[in-house]
Simulated scan of single mutants.
Amino acid sequence: MRFATYVSPRDGTDHVALVKDGALHGLPDRRLIDVLSPERLADAADRAIRAPVEVLPEGSVRLRAPVPQPPSVRDFMAFEQHVVTASAALGREVNPDWYELPVFYFTNPAAVCGPTDPVAVSPGSSAFDYELEIGIVVGAAGRDLDPACAESHVAGYTVLCDWSARDLQAREMALGLGPVKGKDGATSLGPYLVTPDELPDRGAGNAPDVGMRALVNGELWSEGRFSDLHWTVGQLLAYASRGTALRPGDVLGTGTVGTGCILELSAVHGAETRPWLRPGDRVRLEVDLLGAVETTIQPAPPVRPLH
């Protein structure tokens, strides 16, 4: 099953839809977060087919993030190639503890935006970057989860882009905290929430084997696979829930797939061939079976001085 949150032309408000056969089968439900358990999702899908409030062609309405206001957004750093290459780009070696702890940071739920919403450069940044990731959406609450069965708490997957101001991030993290303003300007999610049964088996990998790509102004810049994840999805959920509760609608980002950001690409290809994003650039981040986030980069708002 795949679900979307869309702005209904009937009343101008958010509604949930089952996406099937090229159409959105609308429901009266206004928040996907309220139907994220497997049983409720199945019931919602059944209601959408039997008695939709409207049926609209895909592409005819504005899609919001599947969960526009998640309770929390955690972003991991779970692809080894990204960690190795990005660390080298910053002149560091990989901390051995990375292989023991699937580290993450909390980012800004208020900055979540939809799959086609414009994204502005962070104020004061001249090193704006995309990050090609997958978002894991929690469907069933739980705490201190067992890694072996934690995936049963997943409602579905979506495309995630953690937009990053690398220059701001570097300054903040040098002070022992962060990434703070390096990351909280925008996080794009969408276009759909796709339930786990729609994705292929993981094979020999740690996650479903689907391809991931990033294109800038129509040119392929990044390419990777979800199955290259170093930590399993169950391990990410288990660590996130250690000593605390995961709630329906919580979003866990996988972190950047290998070569899935300009920070890495400039280290591999040179900054002159993969420059930082500028206003007017068109960025498309796509994942097989999950769809694509696509946006045009906007100018940064002015910086308001603190002194």
Rank of each mutant, 00 (worst) to 15 (best):
Y6T: 06
Y6R: 10
D11L: 04
D11E: 06
V19Q: 13
D21K: 09
G22W: 03
G22E: 03
A23P: 02
L24V: 05
G26Q: 01
V35C: 15
L36T: 15
E39H: 08
E39Q: 14
L41I: 10
R47W: 00
R50A: 15
A51K: 13
S60G: 06
R62L: 11
V67K: 08
V73F: 14
D75C: 10
M77C: 14
E80Y: 04
Q81V: 12
V83K: 00
A86Y: 02
N95T: 05
D97L: 15
W98H: 03
P102V: 02
F104H: 14
Y105W: 12
T107C: 10
A110N: 06
A110Y: 06
A111R: 05
P118K: 10
V121W: 00
S125R: 00
S126D: 07
A127V: 02
F128K: 00
A140Y: 06
R143W: 04
A148N: 11
S152H: 13
H153V: 07
G156Q: 02
V159N: 02
A165F: 00
L168D: 01
L168N: 04
Q169F: 11
A174W: 01
V180R: 02
K183Y: 03
K183M: 04
G205K: 14
A207H: 04
P208M: 11
P208V: 10
D209L: 10
M212Y: 04
R213A: 14
L220T: 10
W221F: 10
R225T: 11
F226Q: 14
F226R: 05
S227K: 05
G234L: 13
Q235S: 12
Y239G: 02
Y239P: 00
T244W: 11
T244D: 07
A245Y: 09
A245I: 09
L246A: 14
D250F: 09
G253I: 12
T259D: 09
S266A: 07
T273G: 12
P275L: 04
G280R: 03
V283F: 01
D288G: 02
D288K: 05
L289D: 05
T295W: 01
T295I: 07
Q298P: 08
R304W: 11
